[in-house]
Simulated scan of single mutants.
Amino acid sequence: MIKEFKDFIARGNVVDMAVGIIVGAAFTSIVKSLVNNLINPLIGIFVGKIDLSNLVWTVGDAQFKYGTFLNSVINFLIISFVVFLMVKAINRFRTKKDEEPAKPSEEVQYLKEITELLKEKNNN
C-alpha cells in the first residue's frame, strides 16, 4: 500500500496539480491585494465609497444582509475582470511558436489533383 501511495504521489499529474494549487493561492492573494488596494480606491474616486454592507432587510428577528452579498458579487466581478486583463496581458507577452501550416493528407492532395483535372477537362 505504501508503494502504491508513492507511485500515486510520484505521478506528474499530482505534483503538477499541487504546484498549480500553491501558485493559484499565491496568485489569489496578489489579485485580492491589487483589487482591494488599487482598483477599489480608484473606482471609489469616481463612484464614491463602494460599501453596501449596511443594507439589511429585516423580517421579525431575522436579518438578511443583502448588502454584504452585493459587495461580494461586485468584488467577484472586479476580481474576475482584473484576472481576465492580467491573463490577456500575459498571453500577449508570451512568444508564439512559428507554426508551420500542416501538410495536407494524401486524400486531400488527391482530391485537389482530381478537381484540377476536372477543371482542365471542363475548360477544353
Rank of each mutant, 00 (worst) to 15 (best):
G60R: 08
K103E: 14
N123R: 11
V31D: 01
F5Q: 06
N123E: 15
K65V: 14
I39N: 00
L85E: 12
S33W: 13
F93I: 14
G12L: 06
F46N: 04
N40V: 15
F84Q: 11
E107R: 12
N91G: 10
V108L: 15
G12V: 10
R92E: 13
G48D: 03
F84L: 12
N75F: 05
K3W: 11
A89L: 12
N91F: 05
R11H: 08
V108D: 13
I90D: 10
F8N: 03
T95G: 05
N124F: 07
I9E: 02
L85M: 14
K32Y: 13
S105Q: 04
G12A: 08
I2F: 11
N37R: 11
I43P: 00
R94K: 11
Q109T: 14
I78L: 05
F76N: 02
G20V: 00
L118C: 12
P104W: 14
V14P: 02
K65D: 07
M17K: 07
G48Q: 02
K96P: 04
I45K: 11
R94I: 13
L38R: 15
M1G: 15
K88A: 02
I78D: 00
A102V: 10
E107T: 06
M1R: 09
F5R: 05
V56D: 08
L77G: 03
G20S: 06
G12W: 03
L55K: 01
G24V: 09
M86Y: 01
V73N: 05
T68P: 03
S53D: 03
T58V: 09
K97T: 14
V56F: 04
F69E: 09
I79T: 09
Q109R: 08
L38T: 15
A26W: 07
S33C: 13
V15W: 07
E116L: 05
